[in-house]
């Protein structure tokens, strides 16, 4: 039950942040887009290293730090996968979210909240792909091998 209340509380904070971003800056809170725009602008020198996008990213890291430091939340356990899996998965996540113009936040939270058909389609697709991947890796692969 504890997990469910924390999940709901965290979701409320995420939603509040998304609403504030739209009300004040007029921006959709899509992390893959914000992260990539901030990073590529800094690399192309079209904006400084401290664009609003980069500051949002910096805030996100600080928020995670605060959650565990200030509120005494235990750190999540270390992943059971090795670094090779992190490299492949990280690359695929970056490639996919960039090609598909969004991730869990942009399509899943903001897009669905605007009732965007593109985002609803994308969210159903990546959720299903995620379910299928975990099913294949956890239940199919051990049977086959």
């Amino acid at each position: 039950m504890h997990d469910f209340s924390l999940a709901t509380l965290g979701g409320l904070a995420i939603g509040a942040a998304a609403v504030l971003m739209m009300a004040l800056l007029g921006r959709v809170t899509g992390i893959s887009g914000i992260f990539w725009t901030g990073l590529s602008q800094a690399m192309n020198r079209t904006a400084g290293i401290l664009s609003w996008q980069m500051l949002f990213v910096l805030g996100m890291v600080s928020g995670a730090f605060l959650a565990h430091r200030a509120f005494g939340l235990p750190l999540p356990p270390v992943s059971e996968h090795n670094l090779l899996v992190a490299i492949v998965a990280g690359w695929v996540v970056g490639f996919g979210t960039n090609l598909g113009s969004g991730c869990t936040s942009g399509h899943g939270v903001c897009g669905i909240s605007r009732f965007s058909p593109r985002s609803i389609f994308a969210t159903l697709t990546f959720m299903f792909a995620g379910f299928a991947t975990v099913f294949a890796l956890r239940h199919l692969l051990p049977v086959v091998t």
Binding site: F35, A89, G90, T97, G100, C103, S105, A129, G130, V134
Partner: peptide, 21 residues
Amino acid sequence: PLLYGAILFGLGWGMYGYCPG
């Protein structure tokens, strides 16, 4: 691009458990 991107994103998410945020 939306379809293939979303499929790949879900694949990577399911491999490790991290989405971009």
